[in-house]
Design a protein around this nucleic acid. Structure first.
Lengths: 105, 105
DNA sequence: GTATTATATAAGTATATGCTTATATTCTTA
DNA sequence: TAAGAATATAAGCATATACTTATATAATAC
């Protein structure tokens, strides 16, 4: 992969780097979901959620499908959940290390 | 993990979500490295690189160690590289899917 | 055709982020 | 002690991001 791929990587990471968007992905982990269900799950304004969904879609993380008045979203590549699990591990390890340092002091 | 962990996750992802910082991590993949080596590798102003290193450090992604006038940085948890590999996969898959769609059109 | 529903998009505003220039701090050497 | 090297931090400014309110668009029902 070429050096401009750093830009692509940064773009995708930036698309993931927001609690509301992570919350959306949390919901989509169970499978495709209608916006009408995502909004109450996530909380916040409809337009805000819609905007966050657009960011995820533009980044290629989710895709949408219209069904009548409804729009359903699903994750494009489940590998994104593996990624989030690694983040979990790193954070847990960080917290444990911080605890250890506190015990030494 | 509790729901405030979404904030922690977003924070860490945000710390990763910049091409300069990804470039730094690329350098640190080979092992600990002095700032004096990171700066020319990454390019850009010394102060800018220093600032990016501070962001990575604050996020718990890297740690530093002073050696005389020099400061050496290393990655705290190599799992971050696994994370970056997954990002690679996702992006590659996206590009391939885009290619397929182009062929259909 | 009108009204309602579901959702995307626009516009405005506050805050965050990123880069550059300048400066501060620490360490080493002569 | 002064000078130079290495790096962190401050300040200023431009741009990006995030949220709210308002509006546009498409689908459905009557």
């Amino acid at each position: 992969m070429k050096s401009e791929s750093l830009e692509l990587k940064a773009e995708m990471l930036k698309a993931l780097a927001h609690p509301t968007r992570l919350k959306i992905l949390e919901k989509l982990q169970d499978g495709p979901c209608c916006v009408c269900k995502i909004i109450p799950y996530v909380g916040g304004e409809q337009s805000n959620v819609s905007h966050h969904l657009a960011i995820l879609k533009r980044a290629g993380i989710v895709r949408d499908k219209k069904k009548g008045k409804e729009v359903w979203y699903e994750v494009c590549d489940p590998a994104v959940f593996s990624l989030l699990r690694i983040i979990n591990q790193i954070i847990l390890k960080n917290l444990k290390n911080k605890q250890k340092i506190m015990e030494v002091l």
